[in-house]
Design a binder for these strands. Structure first.
Length: 783
DNA sequence: GATTATATGGTTTTT
DNA sequence: CCATATAATC
């Protein structure tokens, strides 16, 4: 048998070797899910000689897709993997729709609206229907439209559905259906699809065009779906259609990690998979290779409070590990300090690097206090998520020009750039143009092209004509120049780049750099050879570029220069990742579980799954923290500890841990005992309220920003001249070693899993330390 | 019509 | 606290 099968356990192997027919892999956290998926793809190709062109693998993030592709490539050792169709639902469907769009009446170069664009269209439409946007909040309306699409409910069906109408009547928003209808029509007129359309229209395509359905059914003989528990109705139905011919559908998921119901995901998809096909093979991966026993036990305990799960019990052969550290702080700023101190301490004491730490939180807004603390301590970090590079104003401005060049019907982009840089086409002119366009059922661009017909003032007419001429000039270059050259030309001719260049403020400089980075990214796109698909040459046009990048998130930005950084992200963003040391912050009522999600059992259970996801990201160390009060909307707000904390068995908790700041707090006047002791004995919150309720009062007694943690003094060791890290894979107790920082010592004991061995070493000058061999540099001196 | 000052109101999670 | 929307002023 092929060597790539060697590293698999029995269950994993069973899944990999299953060739034809539906397969469901229930993969617990850290059970080697990606490994199984990639090995299975490899096996199909290498052993069964399935053509890469016939394999489709769908993921939820670009990162997951890239990783899969890379790993298959690595095992295979040739470039065949490039021909695999691996990508996110959205990007794969966007690619397919690009070639099939004309069937649906859309241009191939259709624009993909990001959430901001889409909300802006919703707002326009609301106003045009003479509805009050204070009552019909664009945000909420958009969410409702989004849910409808994800449930495959079109505008007509929406307006005719009794239940939906009742619901909207009850909230006093009876016109949402009409807004939805107008929104769809406007998007169509603009030649644009939003994120949800990429699924919705894909479904329409397969449903209404049998020849298309047949074509793709035939092409995708083997289908694999990652994170199946997070699929929504649209995705579910598409997969069903695509897989109907061969029924070689393999889904991988974990019902315990379903955390996207707000995006329309229905956990039913995975719970019911066995009923969807005959003879479904089910494989459960229950051995966890990631976490310590302590971490896993807590995770199991937590998730056990949910009901209605697919039965499974995760276990691990890994070591017991430390107890979970639970820390309470007074404010969110203290929480930040505590975490930063703990990171510093772990780096010194246990020889960790920045990259070994992740700070996870429920909401993006929580990143602030962690950032500040890390910056103060001089610890390099990076925030994942939040606004993506492509959403930044200056970047989006240039992109909007390019969008207009590629698809002049794109009204959102047009409105954005028509007067930027200022050229004298103001609000009145724009409103007028849109009004004419709506009356004549034309696009705004059409009106501008024939501006003379609509009675603009002569001065205005002139600037409009200049603008139109310029855009047309760009368009005429589309076929002659590559994407990068066009982008460059646009940047120059519009003075956009120059304007930013002349801004010498720090922010201006950053903006200029961002635009340069955008140009670089376009250049890179044009120059990277793409995989050929079924003989089609990879599409390197500007249109293809634009469609591709909207689907990129911040996390997909290629890993930059500095990779040794502490990572900060929401728990959602952390799904699928793992880190040696994990901090989960903000374990407070109203925050986590979030106040928005405690009204039904379902919501609460999803929050709990989210907590489960957070815990199971940790390999060796897990810190949980919560704060007595935190700033929200600029004001200090009190919160009770999260109910999830009570669900953790006492014997797995270490409540004594406190970083420097927390210790400082414990000595605050009038407080006795450590934080948790006070809290758990029915801590009188009224006391605290009195202390903190005055807005504007500084809640913290002034503390030095650089509180030095009281940690054991490290006797620095200068490595010997011939110091060189040895291969420690066979390190035994009794051997004498030299450590870069801790000096000379003797190995007392070996423990930990094979892939993550931990040595306990007695150092001459620094006492006993636990050293993780994966990270430490040790020189073996003698046995 | 453009630039600047003030008000308002909003936070869950994301492709 | 922050970002965006509206008002006020040039």
């Amino acid at each position: 048998m092929a060597t790539y099968l060697d590293g698999l356990n029995e269950r994993q192997r069973e899944a990999v070797l299953h060739k034809d027919g539906p397969l469901m892999i229930i993969a617990g956290a850290g059970s080697g899910k990606t490994k199984v998926l990639t090995t299975r793809i490899t096996h199909l190709m290498a052993h069964h000689h399935i053509d890469a062109f016939n394999i489709l693998a769908l993921t939820f993030t670009n990162k997951a897709a890239a990783e899969m592709k890379e790993r298959v490539e690595k095992i295979l050792g040739n470039s065949e993997a490039r021909n695999l169709y691996i990508g996110t639902f959205h990007s794969v469907f966007a690619r397919i729709l690009r070639s099939e769009a004309p069937k649906l009446g859309f241009p191939s170069n259709f624009t993909i609206y990001d959430t901001d664009d889409a909300k802006s269209v919703v707002k326009t439409v609301i106003n045009e229907l003479h509805l009050d946007d204070k009552h019909y909040k664009p945000n909420q309306v958009y969410n409702r439209i989004s849910s409808a699409k994800n449930a495959l409910v079109g505008p007509a069906e929406y307006m005719n559905d009794y239940g939906l109408q009742q619901e909207d009547a009850r909230t006093n928003r009876p016109m949402i259906g009409q807004i939805y209808d107008a929104y769809s029509k406007r998007c169509f007129k603009n030649g644009a699809m939003d994120f949800d359309d990429l699924l919705f229209k894909m479904y329409i395509l397969l449903k209404n065009f049998p020849e298309s359905l047949h074509k793709f059914q035939h092409k995708f003989k083997y289908i694999m779906i990652d994170e199946y528990q997070d699929t929504n109705t649209a995705q579910y139905e598409i997969v069903k259609l695509l897989g109907a011919m061969h029924e070689n559908v393999c889904v991988v998921g974990d019902d315990a990690q379903s955390i996207y119901s707000f995006r329309g995901a229905t956990i039913e998809n995975i719970l019911q998979f066995e009923n969807d096909y005959d003879d479904v093979k089910v494989v459960k991966l229950e051995q966890n290779y990631r976490s310590t026993k302590n971490i896993l036990k807590v995770a199991n305990e937590i998730i056990g409070n949910n009901k209605g799960q697919i039965e499974k019990k995760l276990f691990t052969d890994n070591s017991e590990g430390d107890k979970i550290k639970l820390v309470r702080t007074m404010t969110d700023n203290d929480e930040g300090k505590m975490v930063a101190d703990a990171i510093q301490e772990n780096k010194l004491r246990n020889h960790y690097f920045n990259q070994d730490f992740a700070i996870l939180y429920r909401t993006n807004a929580q990143s602030r206090s962690f950032e500040e603390a890390l910056r103060r301590m001089g610890i390099a970090y990076r925030i994942y998520g939040g606004t993506s590079f492509y959403q930044r104003k200056e970047v989006k401005d240039l992109l909007s020009y390019l969008r207009v060049v590629v698809n002049p019907r794109d009204e959102e982009a047009l409105k954005r750039i028509i007067n930027y840089p200022a050229r004298g086409i103001g609000k009145t002119t724009i409103d007028k143009a849109i009004l004419f366009a709506n009356e004549q059922n034309l696009s705004m661009w059409d009106v501008l092209c024939n501006a003379a017909m609509y009675g603009f003032r002569s001065g205005t007419l002139e600037v409009i004509d200049d603008f139109v001429t310029m855009v047309k000039m760009f368009q005429s270059e589309l076929d002659k120049k590559n994407a990068y050259d066009i982008a460059n030309m646009v940047g120059k001719n519009t003075n956009l780049v120059k304007e930013l260049f002349n801004d010498k403020t720090t922010e201006g400089l950053a903006r200029y750099e961002n635009v340069q980075e955008l140009l670089n990214s376009i250049k890179e796109f044009t120059e990277t050879p793409s995989n050929e698909e079924d003989g089609e040459v990879g599409d390197k046009s500007l249109g293809a570029y634009l469609q591709q990048i909207v689907l990129l998130t911040d996390a997909d930005q290629g890993d930059q220069e500095n990779t040794d950084v502490v990572k900060l992200m929401t728990i959602h963003a952390a799904k699928g990742l793992e880190f040696p040391v994990v901090f989960v912050g903000g374990l407070e009522e109203t925050l986590f579980p979030n106040a928005m999600s405690i009204n039904t059992r379902e919501e609460l259970e999803e929050e709990r799954r989210l907590f489960y996801v957070a815990i199971t990201r940790a390999k060796t160390k897990l810190y949980l923290s919560y704060s007595n009060a935190r700033y929200r909307f600029g004001q200090l707000q009190q919160n009770d500890p999260s109910r999830f904390i009570e669900e953790i068995p006492e014997q797995h908790l270490d409540k004594s841990y406190a970083g420097a700041s927390a210790r400082n707090n414990a000595t605050s006047p009038g407080l006795r005992g450590n934080a948790f002791e006070r809290m758990s004995k029915g801590f009188p919150s009224s006391n605290q309220a009195a202390q903190y309720s005055r807005p504007g009062a500084n809640p913290e007694p002034t503390k030095p920003a650089y509180a030095i943690p009281a940690r054991p003094q490290l006797k620095e060791h200068t490595p010997s001249e011939n110091f060189e890290a040895s291969d420690t894979s066979n390190l035994q107790a009794g051997q004498k070693v030299e450590h870069q920082k801790f000096g000379f010592g003797v190995v007392a004991k070996m423990e930990g899993a094979a892939h993550n061995p931990i040595a306990t070493i007695n150092f001459e000058n620094n006492g006993e330390k636990k050293i993780m061999l994966n990270y430490a540099k040790l020189r073996i001196i003698a046995e």
